[in-house]
Amino acid sequence: MSRISVRGFAVASATAVTAVGSVVGVASGSTAQNNDAEATAADATLLADMPAGQQAQVQTASLTQQADVQAIAADVSAKKDAEEAARKAAAQTAIEKKDAAEKAAKAAQEAKEREEAEAKASRSASTASFPVQSSYTVAQIQAMARQVVPSDQWTCFSNIVDHESSWNYRAVNPSSGAYGLFQALPGSKMSSVGADWQTNPGTQIKWGLNYMNERYGSPCGAWSFWQANKWY
């Protein structure tokens, strides 16, 4: 290779490197990119003095380096996008977990309030005082029951009594001997509430409500079981 061609090759190589530096400067936002571009333009004049074959080699090398720089820049951009997507996904997961925790806490609070209401109703049923009469109409018995049965449980409570005794507090099952409004078997178990369980529907109501709350959680729990099994 002649002295001129060697010098030209060196200059052209420097031109290629400078061109690559320009690309990097543009990708990174460097303030030196204008100076790099001017240097590239100046060196390009020297590149024209080189033989065509050498020019092609230098230009190929320059394009390859530029492609490498662009690939690196693309990789950096892709990495940033992936990190941003991961950050957003983590934030969304945190929000979902928070919402789930709040819903669980709310459900637990509602369950606690229901339990307290049922316990209060049970205590009210145990301590309620009803006037003693020689006989009672269905309307009177239902009015007594409404005093102690929570309003949201009334329909379920009433459905069970309707099916068990039709509100007849002296009803007796001829086969089993089950007795009263709730067809307790044996009927004598209602004596835990009062000795007048055979003649006082108020005593039976106290026992029946306590039984439903203790065994099924509520009258509606007892009614759901009754519907599935035809007994409770």
Rank of each mutant, 00 (worst) to 15 (best):
218 S>K: 05
165 S>I: 04
53 G>S: 13
46 L>Q: 07
57 Q>N: 11
78 A>G: 10
40 T>N: 08
130 F>W: 01
206 K>F: 00
92 Q>R: 13
140 Q>Y: 06
117 A>C: 07
156 C>N: 06
103 K>P: 06
170 R>N: 10
134 S>D: 15
142 Q>L: 01
221 G>T: 03
133 Q>K: 13
73 A>Y: 01
81 D>G: 14
2 S>V: 08
127 T>Y: 11
187 G>F: 00
191 S>C: 08
2 S>W: 09
221 G>D: 00
81 D>L: 15
47 L>F: 07
165 S>D: 07
218 S>D: 07
226 W>N: 09
224 S>Y: 08
136 Y>D: 00
9 F>C: 08
152 D>H: 10
183 Q>F: 03
161 V>S: 03
43 D>H: 14
50 M>F: 12
82 A>G: 04
127 T>H: 09
150 P>R: 04
75 D>M: 13
1 M>G: 15
190 M>N: 02
115 E>Q: 12
101 A>E: 13
232 Y>I: 06
217 G>T: 05
193 V>H: 06
114 R>G: 05
221 G>F: 11
186 P>Y: 03
157 F>M: 06
24 V>K: 04
199 T>D: 07
111 A>L: 13
83 E>G: 09
176 S>P: 08
175 S>E: 11
175 S>T: 12
135 S>V: 11
149 V>T: 05
169 Y>W: 07
25 G>H: 06
114 R>W: 01
43 D>P: 08
69 V>T: 02
57 Q>P: 06
